[in-house]
Simulated assay, not measured.
Amino acid sequence: MEKEQYLNELEEIRTMMSKSSKFLSLSGYSGISAGVIALLGGSLFKYYYWGSRYQLGKEDLIAIIGLGVITLCLVLALTLFFSWRKGKKQGLSLWNSQSQQLLYHMLAPLIPGGIICLHLVWNNNLPEALAMSQVFYGLALFSSARYTIGAIKSLGLIEISLGLFAYFLPQWADLFWLTGFGVLHLIYGGLMQKKEA
């Protein structure tokens, strides 16, 4: 009996330490919504701009950047909403030292990556922009994984790999992007949601 009580106490301590050092409010619905939005945004991009045999004009490039910004803003808004909702159910604050660390380690690669991707789009290097967006996003996930659930690290490594494939196989960069940002997020979010249920 004492051994069982001791093990239960150890498990409680481990859970408390995990809650204090990791951002646990990330919801499976965040991944699912990110995947759906990425597939919609990426499909619009593919339909209108991918494979154009002509040099895209500045108006087209501005539209592509706008589509990217709208897609990113929708993903962020839904991620925050679902994380806030999950945190509220668990009695956790969305803005705490763990989420601050997570954000800090994500933004370190995302900000320079975003600047590079904007430059690539503006100079009509769309395949490279798609590839680099995946590489830098993967780096952001990998570097922030220690502040949230462990599966983020694996997702980051897969995103980096897909980005490298996209870089060296630019004719399929759009498909690698849709797979990484769309399909993988749907799978990852679905698995997370299944664990939560």
Rank of each mutant, 00 (worst) to 15 (best):
E2C: 07
K3V: 11
E4F: 04
Y6T: 07
N8H: 13
E9I: 10
E9Q: 15
L10R: 13
E11F: 14
E12Y: 15
I13N: 06
I13T: 14
R14I: 10
T15L: 14
K19I: 03
K19C: 04
K22M: 05
I32M: 00
L39F: 01
S43G: 08
F45I: 15
K46W: 11
K46S: 07
G51S: 05
S52R: 11
R53A: 14
Y54I: 15
Q55G: 10
G57A: 03
G66Y: 06
G66Q: 12
G68A: 04
I70H: 00
L74V: 12
L74H: 08
V75I: 15
L76Q: 08
A77E: 02
L78K: 03
F81W: 06
W84N: 13
R85L: 11
G87S: 11
G87F: 05
G87H: 07
K89F: 03
K89V: 09
G91N: 14
S97V: 13
S99Q: 06
S99L: 07
S99A: 02
Q100E: 13
Y104D: 14
L107G: 07
P109R: 11
G113Q: 07
L118C: 13
N123W: 02
N124M: 00
N125E: 15
A131P: 04
G138F: 00
G138P: 00
A140G: 10
S143E: 08
A145Y: 03
R146C: 05
R146E: 10
T148M: 03
S154K: 03
I158V: 15
E159K: 11
E159I: 08
S161K: 09
A166M: 04
Y167V: 12
P170V: 13
W177P: 13
T179M: 03
G180S: 15
V183H: 09
H185A: 06
H185V: 02
I187T: 09
Y188V: 05
Y188C: 05
M192Q: 11
K194P: 05
